[in-house]
């Protein structure tokens, strides 16, 4: 029975515990369990850059091979964030090697090492109907599309599809309006907080 407990523990363990375990035993199977948790995200990011299913799948596997060594060499404290950086770097290098131009190229290079992939904004914690003045003020300052998308998404809890239909926008536009609006809101609120603090 004892060994069954050990089996269960392996898949129940946190990312960081698994990494420790992997560093101790250098057992690729442990890394496999860990990577399995993120495989869809890694694949998604690769798809975003390569825009091709086959290349992306190969990239997912090559990144895994890379992790086998990298995780032994580097001390990783937050796997999720670290993996995201690794994946992006890999994709950027691959894409630029092949001389393909990618739209968001500029965004790639201003990144810094990431402790967290969290992108929190005050709107995340705002319940519909419970708007504070500060947020409302900042919301007012957003561009029209961003503002209406944020309002519909966070305050009326509509999904992309509904917003897209309502504003006759393609879904990826809706997403980027919300994403950028969210970022701007956060900046705006931080700006307003500073003087008072």
């Amino acid at each position: 029975m004892k060994f069954l407990k050990n089996i269960r523990k392996l898949s129940d363990r946190s990312d960081e515990e698994l990494i420790l375990h992997y560093r101790e035993q250098a057992d690729v199977a442990i890394l496999g369990i860990l990577y399995q948790r993120y495989i869809h995200l890694v694949y998604g990011v690769c798809l975003k850059y390569f825009k091709n299913r086959e290349d992306s799948q190969d990239a997912v596997m090559q990144i895994f091979e890379k992790l086998v060594d990298d995780l032994l060499q580097h001390q990783v404290t937050y796997f999720r964030g670290w993996l995201y950086v690794v994946v992006r770097h890999y994709c950027i290098r691959k894409v630029s090697q092949e001389g393909k131009r990618v739209q968001q190229n500029q965004e790639f290079f201003d990144e810094k090492f990431m402790e967290s992939t969290l992108e929190w904004s005050p709107v995340d914690d705002t319940e519909p109907g419970d708007m504070n003045r500060l947020l409302e003020d900042c919301l007012e300052q957003l561009k029209a599309e961003q503002q209406s998308c944020i309002r519909l998404f966070y305050l009326q809890e509509k999904c992309y599809q509904e917003i897209g239909e309502q504003l006759s926008l393609p879904l990826n536009k809706v997403k980027s309006y919300i994403q950028n609006g969210k970022r701007n809101l956060k900046l705006c609120i931080e700006r307003k907080h500073e003087p008072s603090a």
């Binding site: 798809l47 992306s56 964030g81 995201y84 969290l118 992108e119 990826n172 997403k175 994403q179």
Partner: peptide, 13 residues
């Protein structure tokens, strides 16, 4: 949208 990893992956997926 609360996680940049997810946000990027979502675009691809």
């Amino acid at each position: 949208m609360q996680d940049t990893f997810d946000t990027d992956a979502f675009d691809g997926l």
